[in-house]
Design a protein around this nucleic acid. Sequence first.
DNA 1: ACAAGTGTTCTTTTT
DNA 2: GAACACTTGT
Length: 738
Amino acid sequence: MEMNLERELNPQQLKAVRQTEGPLIIFAGAGSGKTRVLTYRIAYLIDLGISPFRIMAVTFTNRAAAEMRERVQQLVGRDARDVWVSTFHSMAVRILRREARYIPYDRSFIIYDSADQMTLMKHCIEELRVDDRKFRPRGVLAEISSIKNELVTPKEYFELTRNVREETIADLYSLYQKKLLHQNAMDFDDLLVQAVELFRSEPSVLEHYQDRFQYIMVDEYQDTNHAQYVLVRQLAGGHRNICVVGDDDQSIYGWRGADIRNILTFEKDYPEVSEIKLEQNYRSTQCILTVANALISHNSGRKPKELWTSNGAGDPVSCYQSLDEKDEARFVAAEIRKLVNQEDATYCNCAVFYRTHAQSRAIEEEFIRSGIPYRIYGGVRFYERKEIKDILAYLRLVANPADEVSLLRVINEPRRGIGDVTIARAEEAASREGKSLAYVLEHPEGIPSLGKRAIGALNGFFQMVNNWRKLDGAVSVASLVERILEETGYLSILESEKTVEAETRLENLKEFLGVAEQYDSGGIDRSLDGFLEELALVTDIDNYEPGENAVVMMTIHGAKGMEFPVVFLTGLEEGLFPHVHALGEKDELEEERRLCYVGITRAQEKLYLSWAIRRFIYGSSEHKEPSRFLKEIPQEYLCPVVYSYGDKSGDCTADSRDNEKTGHAVKESVAGNKEAAAVTAPAPATFKVGDKVEHKKFGRGVVMETKFGPGGDLEIYVSFESAGFKHLMAKYAPLKKV
DNA sequence: ACAAGTGTTCTTTTT
DNA sequence: GAACACTTGT
């Protein structure tokens, strides 16, 4: 392996790579080459002769893990496969399955997502006859989650309760855990809690892992919660070669239990720690960094540091005051078009960030109107769609007969005559006889006062399910999916509906089938359990495809760890960003400020900040004040933008004026805008139904449908051989006829 | 048992 | 505004 470390790294980075022994904390400012350091460090260790088996790197997101794995592989080749690079959660799952004999759950435990948790908690609230107005599933789950993140068991929590409310929470917590265990299911928090508990109760198991992992690295350390912190401390307890990388200014998951003190007090836990600061930024222009530094300096209790760059000043940061969210969207769209047409930007160079998903709508509508290709990440997620959750529930029920949440979800979906009354009677019988609900339902003859129809329906249902269970292992996951969809009538019911909604659902199911096929072809041991596990830990943001030529839209949380040449940070208004919820608390306000800082520091070359005087939100139009974050940035660093309409087709352009201290600019109209006139779209290729086409990324496919969209542009629906069904804009898609 | 209609509530971020 | 829960009618 040839690595010229001196040439590839700056002195601080080099030091961080070479300091392999003992605890090390790296304060890595945004864009300071943190991933570079981590990957080179792993490569360097392997180069020193350390076995890749003995190196572990932990990240927060699958995306970060995948990126790191890939980059390590580029450096060291196939040795990279033996390094444990994973998220906290997948690492925990891996250990828990391997050591399942020591934990109270069966090896094949399943992972409940937030919707499953919600369902389960509703059952708990019902069962305990708790006032469901005072105790909403959402809130209760949030409280329980933070209790769990503090590694407090139901029993311990009960000792700590100081009022009736907390006692009720304790009861619910206890019941909730009991039900989870009963159904052989863990929620996300349990994965961490159980791993810690395993290591506490089985010192020999812990010793094994401590011994094995000679070098441990943790990314985004500022986002660790207490459970994760303890887990890391346990694992690193042997060799103490623990390297954590983080930036206290980028801690944005406090609401999820992340404890910023973990990074600030690392020195206390490891007195022999070395500390390295990475302050040189390789990502952004100085103008962008100046704004970022100015903003974040308003936070207290941070490690003092200041980012700098040798990238040059760059363009000033623009600030646009819009009339409302539609105007803001038009501005963003117009500016993107200008950049794409006049400068060498591409759509995928541009990203639009917002505080809440709800804000994406206005921007999306404008993008559709003006034919700008875009892709929204997060929001209503693929795996949270009803039809996807349904088929997943079927699969989970096949894999795990004890999974009551899944059972209840699909037992009458599609409708087969097993209604609430039947379920209620079964529940009654189950608790009376001390049997599980699943068992009672499968043997309905024992339930008193149940009609013949219901018994028949139940028997039919379980016959189907048991049939699939026999197939499990014998056939591929994809064909199991197909059979379930057909035999339940799920497909035919959707097909007969003939509504747009049903269409979309069918498309989604087709896409899901594609996911299953992809899994099936992925190698050996393609079990259903493995498939479900893979899906349990993915999120849509993980599916970010950098190659796709579309503007990226996402929340700022989703943008962490990414970078884009052009960034629009929208909705900078009091009550929205910072969010109302954070206005009172100082800590929360500082977290919002860090969030804003994260957004700003994603930008490489151009940064636009925007806000709206009025915004349509929660069903009504509200007057808004500019965000305090805008005011905290010295006005001379911001360049107000004047935005002028061209003709009504939406062609327009934005002008930046140098540092006019006029506050925010006023919209003005310019007739016969030259720039706008110069902007003409390339002659759109024509496609018709049945055309065979080839897409740069998706490969070969057939045009299934064509139509003209609201902007008058040709939109086509293509069914690709491998990539499935896609909706494309003929104008922009890298598509040609074959 | 189910569909349609009515009322109600709550609006953040996600492994 | 929209998702959700609850009620009523068939």
